[in-house]
Design a protein around this nucleic acid. Structure first.
Length: 231
DNA sequence: AAAGGAGTCAACCGCCATTCG
DNA sequence: GCGAATGGCGGTTGACTCCTT
């Protein structure tokens, strides 16, 4: 027999699948009245035949008013790359550094754009590489502008500090170390200089799947591959 | 023009951590 | 202290759209 949930709606009657406009409306009204949280009460209070998890997900990923719509910008992409290199698949942590973007959005973006390891040089892969290479160069130009006045010695000091911090980060509470990205006036512009011949930077990018988890050494190597191209 | 592949997005599932009685 | 309820997160899937051949 069907079991009854606490709110009186039969477990087997939870609706699944795509949300309707009416369900969205009910959920938005509920949040306006009661605020976020208490998601399991939504079914009873808003008249929705959705479980709490489904309601929360719908709100967080789609209905929240502060969500940013549209494609991931080159700048956001560079932030994702950088934070993923540091934190791996901690999508919610990465999302906190990108206001208006959800962990789900970033996760989807990553999987479709960067999780291409192992596939050899098909035409699509080449296109993707070319596209990403341009983005990478954009990121490079950003960094160069930020460090315009610094000489190489200072740079190396920064790198050594960078590695030190990374090692510390891997053993401490990472949630308190959100990356602050300083933007330059050029940040939102599409500046696409000539492509360099050296494609070794891709070695780091295309093998990033291997860098997940706690392998800090590999992560450091990857970061070095990225950063070393700027000097 | 049609078929197949790739990209995109929304949603579900299972696990884990936290909260609460 | 313990167990159930709840919320949050990452992984995965499926449907739809767009692009290429």
């Amino acid at each position: 027999m069907a079991q009854y949930a606490r709110c009186g709606v039969m477990e087997e009657e939870w609706r699944k699948g795509p949300w309707t406009a009416e369900e969205d409306r009910l959920l938005v009204e509920y949040v306006k009245l009661h605020g976020e949280g208490k998601w399991n009460a939504v079914a009873m209070l808003a008249g929705l035949k959705r479980n709490g998890k489904s309601c929360r997900l719908r709100w967080v990923n789609y209905l929240r008013p502060d969500l940013k719509r549209g494609r991931i910008t080159p700048y956001e992409e560079s932030v994702i790359l950088e934070l993923h290199a540091r934190w791996g698949n901690r999508w919610s942590t990465i999302a906190r550094s990108l206001p208006g973007r959800t962990d789900n959005e970033i996760k989807n973006y990553w999987r479709t754009h960067f999780k291409k390891k192992g596939k050899s040089t098909s035409r699509n892969t080449e296109k993707l590489r070319a596209r990403l290479l341009k983005r990478q160069q954009f990121q490079q130009q950003q960094l160069q502008q930020q460090r315009y006045q610094q000489d190489e010695i200072d740079m190396k000091k920064i790198i050594s500090l960078f590695y030190e911090n990374d090692t510390k980060l891997s053993t401490s509470d990472e949630s308190s170390h959100e990356l602050v990205v300083h933007t330059s006036p050029l940040v939102e512009q599409e500046v696409l200089p000539e492509a360099p011949n050296d494609l070794s930077i891709w070695d780091g990018l295309w093998s990033m799947d291997d860098l997940h988890g706690n392998n800090c050494l590999n992560r450091a190597i990857y970061q070095h591959n990225l950063v070393s191209h700027f000097f």
